[in-house]
């Protein structure tokens, strides 16, 4: 039973990170029907900004807790700024272009951002300071769940609740839902669609940055390539849950995290990715629009 619980929490940690990144994919897709391949890179940039800010603040001798808060804030602000700029440069001019063009633009941006960070920083792995405080009450369970795992799970849960509230009840959230349903209609009823799209990118990127800083602090190292694999996994999670659906992304992330962790634990980690993708194929065969995605109604 202990072994099961350990795997359960390890999957939950992983899944929470996937879910945080997957939310960005799903929100962007819901609104402009674009797979934002550069989203993983935003996550990586968030982690890097967290690193440099933490480094600078440490050199000025700030106390540990304030470093954690300030570094995360900076990461969120910068990731949001990058997301906003990315949309302006690479996607907005392509709004009326053929459907695949923005996708290629996104792949190009992903390659560009990876190499930009590699050249500006380094291709080596860099040590990331552990920003998480140690929670004394977790000492008893340290073999099952560590402090940073706990923090990741709690923060992810809080962020997701906030996001749900934001989408449900604020004016901007309503505008987002309207745009996702029908962009033209939303425009006609006076929604500023450009603004909504920008806000979507900003929110999605900030969520990715939260994930980036958390995981970098949990793992203790980063390099320019971390965004790529996490991005693909998160994208898988988003599709699994039904792309375009916010609760779907959360569910998809968790399911993917658990699949990988249980597969490693009870079968073999050699094939964890094979299992993850096979699960995706099986789910999509039975539910072609993902777990919580709505099948589009086709009117002829």
């Amino acid at each position: 039973m202990d072994y099961f619980l350990e795997l359960f929490f390890s999957g939950l940690t992983r899944g929470s990170i996937y879910a945080l990144i997957a939310l960005g994919y799903t929100m962007v897709y819901g609104i402009i029907e674009l797979i934002n391949f550069a989203h993983g890179e935003i996550y990586m940039i968030g982690a890097f900004v967290g690193l440099t800010v933490a480094g600078v603040l440490t050199s000025f001798g700030f106390p540990a807790t304030s470093i954690m808060v300030l570094a995360s804030m900076a990461a969120i602000v910068y990731a949001a700024a990058y997301g906003y700029t990315l949309e302006k440069i690479a996607y907005r001019p392509l709004r009326s272009a053929p459907r695949l063009s923005p996708l290629i633009s996104a792949i190009g941006m992903s390659i560009f951002l990876q190499n930009y960070v590699m050249l500006a920083q380094t291709s080596d792995f860099i040590s990331f300071p552990s920003l998480t405080p140690e929670f004394a009450f977790l000492d008893k369970y340290s073999s099952t769940i560590g402090s940073s795992d706990f923090l990741i799970i709690v923060v992810a849960a809080v962020v997701m609740v906030l996001l749900t509230l934001f989408i449900k009840f604020t004016r901007m959230g309503k505008a987002m839902r309207a745009t996702a349903q029908n962009r033209k209609m939303a425009m006609l009823v006076g929604v500023n669609v450009d603004q909504v799209i920008s806000v979507t990118f900003i929110v999605g990127s900030s969520l990715a940055a939260v994930g980036g800083v958390l995981i970098a602090s949990h793992i203790g190292q980063i390099n320019f390539f971390i965004g790529f694999i996490a991005g693909i996994k998160a994208f898988t999670a988003a599709v699994l849950g039904g792309i375009g659906s916010v609760p779907g992304a959360m569910l998809g992330g968790l399911i993917l995290g658990w699949t990988e962790s249980f597969c490693t634990g009870y079968v073999s980690s050699d094939y964890e990715d094979v299992f993850a993708f096979a699960l995706l194929v099986i789910i999509l065969i039975f539910r072609p629009s993902g777990l919580l995605g709505k099948a589009p109604i086709q009117k002829v």
Binding site: A97, P98, I104
Partner: peptide
């Protein structure tokens, strides 16, 4: 050399922005 992948990515974006139909 090391800048080539950077240029490669940028080219992809620029071509798409200015000639979206290819």
């Amino acid at each position: 050399s090391e800048y080539r992948m950077l240029v490669f990515g940028a080219t992809m974006v620029l071509v798409m922005v200015f000639r979206p139909q290819g």
